[in-house]
């Protein structure tokens, strides 16, 4: 009796990114949200408020910090869209389309961010 063996899933790749992203969402994102809220509240003060121009210049002109920001965006977007892709299953939508939309969007977000950050880095120097 020959058994048809199922094919290997590519899910591990996305799952690993999802795992890392979930970690970022739970450990780093709350602090980032506090900073964003603080920035909103102190936005009247362009010199000393949170995320003032000097501060964001500092972040994006530093290759390491800029890379950190990119990492957060990259992992979070894959994490979030991976989860949403699976949620579409939970709503009874079983289509390859959601796969393309989810991981396509995550890739797009990451590429846009990377491009913009590189652009800025070049502009600074």
């Amino acid at each position: 009796m020959r058994q048809f063996l199922p094919t290997r899933s590519d899910e591990p790749m996305y799952w690993l990114m999802f795992g890392a992203g979930g970690m970022v969402a739970s450990m780093v994102l709350p602090a980032i949200m506090v900073v964003l809220i603080a920035a909103g509240l102190t936005s009247g003060d362009l010199q000393n408020g949170f995320l003032n121009l000097g501060q964001v210049y500092g972040i994006f002109s530093n290759w390491f910090l800029s890379l950190c920001v990119f990492g957060v965006i990259f992992l979070l977007s894959f994490y979030a869209l991976h989860r949403m892709h699976h949620s579409s299953h939970d709503f009874g939508i079983h289509s390859k389309l959601t796969w393309y939309i989810a991981y396509g969007s995550a890739a797009a977000i990451s590429f846009i961010s990377l491009g913009l950050q590189l652009l800025m880095y070049v502009k600074f120097f």
């Binding site: 063996l5 199922p6 899933s9 591990p12 799952w15 699976h86 299953h89 939970d90």
Partner: peptide, 14 residues
Amino acid sequence: APFLNSEEGAWSCT
């Protein structure tokens, strides 16, 4: 491994 690695294996679990 083929059963574990497949879509209907561990990877269907959320």
